[in-house]
Design a protein around this nucleic acid. Sequence first.
DNA 1: CCTTGTGTTCTCCG
DNA 2: CCGGAGAACACAAG
Length: 309
Amino acid sequence: MPELPEVETIRRDLTRHVLGKTVKDVSVSHAKVVGGDIEAFAGALAGKRFQEIDRVGKLLIFSFGREQFLLVHLKMTGQLIYHAGEFIIAGGHSLTSTSEVYPAQSARGGRRRAGGHSQTDDPEVQPGKHTRIAIGFADGSKLFFHDMRLFGFMRMVNEAGRSKAISAFGIEPLTALFTLEKFAGVFRGRKTSVKAVLLNQSLIAGIGNIYADEICFSAGIRPSRQASRVTKAEALALYAATKQIIKRAIKERGTTFNTYVDGAGNKGNFVRFLQVYGRGGQPCRHCGKTLMKKRVAGRGTVFCLSCQK
DNA sequence: CCTTGTGTTCTCCG
DNA sequence: CCGGAGAACACAAG
């Protein structure tokens, strides 16, 4: 599940690789992943030059000047992978034209292994049965959007569309506006759980199920605790944990639990540092007691009854 | 059945 | 009866 650290890792990877490149051709497998109209999307994107890549929460924003933007959301299983070189088919010969291997409206075309440097198994097949969008650049390199579940999307929007998308997000961790004052403020007066607040993108941008559980563990607070009952000291603990865990996760290039890969198709390393996520029934790394798993805020949630109050 | 991010819809309460 | 908060549902595929 790409959350803030994963999306930020991809943003940095792609900033290095696709900035300044011009879109030559665009292929799309399903209309719904580009907002319903493949022709309109491909037409709007063709010929555009990538000028800047920003991120708000888990949303990527590619800029083409002041009036045209590409919004990309990976949702649960989306991947955005850049390929510099040519494609090597199982048989051995290379391809240079996207349309030859990946006609619009058809995601089929067999499994073709990419040129060598990837570490994961399924995700780097280029293009594969889960390839939804292929963007070919003038220099022959390509950007692939994969998504097993058809939740993720790309959209071309104008400045009004960009502003609207950004305004839906709450405070952004790791920016100057992410102050203890504002952070503590989002918990104040809320009857819902601490976890629901952490997951609410309109309050705090970028936290998903993995980091919400990790933040709660680090702060020693049960995810089910009522937000309004969080004390000042606990708000500080949650605030510090949020900043520290997100920073560290970015440094480790994100968490690969199931399907996440970075802009080059490689896994993230933060799994090694997970204290609770995915560890229900296993011993707490701090006290040794069995970690509890239950549903909080509609999500699978793992915590330690003894370390978290 | 489970997994989860988010948009939409439903329900409750004052 | 309105508005807002929060919960529940829908979506998708393995």
